[in-house]
Design a binder for these strands. Sequence first.
DNA 1: ATTTATTTTCAATAAGTTTTGAAAATTCAA
DNA 2: TTGAATTTTCAAAACTTATTGAAAATAAAT
Lengths: 168, 168
Amino acid sequence: MKLSEAKAQFISSWGAFGTQWGINRTMAQIHALLLISPDPITQDTIMAELNISRGNVNMNTRELIDWGLVDRVLIPGERKEFFSAEKDIWKVATQIIKERKKRELDPMLKLLGQLEKIDGQAKDRDVKQFTETIAGIRKFGNQADKVLDVMIRAEENWFTGTLLKFFK
Amino acid sequence: MKLSEAKAQFISSWGAFGTQWGINRTMAQIHALLLISPDPITQDTIMAELNISRGNVNMNTRELIDWGLVDRVLIPGERKEFFSAEKDIWKVATQIIKERKKRELDPMLKLLGQLEKIDGQAKDRDVKQFTETIAGIRKFGNQADKVLDVMIRAEENWFTGTLLKFFK
DNA sequence: ATTTATTTTCAATAAGTTTTGAAAATTCAA
DNA sequence: TTGAATTTTCAAAACTTATTGAAAATAAAT
């Protein structure tokens, strides 16, 4: 397979994969392009490679920066801004986990905590099923929270990081 | 907080949460409603509770059944079909993991396998970055695959299941 | 076999999301 | 400063996905 063909295939599939996970197709494609680019690239390169508008590139690179997956890079002597993605996949994964946890899991757990205090007779079937469901999800969510924290800290901590190399 | 208020809040949040994960809002809401319903309920009840059309209920309950999260229940003497959701959150989670793994992770790993064979000089920076990225994602994906298999099998296996109770 | 209840399908429509592109804002150099 | 290069914004348009609802299909009862 030729490189150009493989690149196109990867970018397109990564985009499709992203949409299944609630990530904007273009954002995923830009990320894919940056992952396989050995050097930082400009807005114009992204526009040309993916055939998308300047505004679109601008919005989605910003979003990728917000997620901590991409950096703006200043190249001495160059007027334009360049973009570069974190290439270590383990770091990419922990960064995504960290963000989704903060944006989604933590608020959900907070909400569930509030929903557990219900007026009404605990013997009432409806009340019982409701509180049990909420408690079950909360317990599961809290465990997931802890497991994810371990993963995230593993990346930031030298000792576990070293252990992790055997796993990676 | 009153039960009715808490229910509405839970269903609505579960739906919003779902959309962030690439799951149709209505499907997530129906799932939420079934999770907190002590007894199986009919299409009409779902229509009334969520204010949605019959066709919508029909499509989304089918999808939930496909995902293995909901069952059709026949109640003796009743003409209508009833629906009931698996209530054990751990089982719900492993079922979702199992399905997403099958539908998304496995095909992605297959694709990455194909993309690793690239014509071209391995010293070429472009080729090098591409193959390294693909290899990195593939390695990570394979590890995730293994970890998820352990989780899934834990649910299906008595011994690990017993161990798991300490964790749950 | 016919009627009645119930479920399923799917074209049309509505709702939601993403993308464009041109104007405004910003940045840098002369 | 002023002007050119570059980035950002955001209303309008394009595209995608979800929902409706009525007709067709199926299943059960008489």
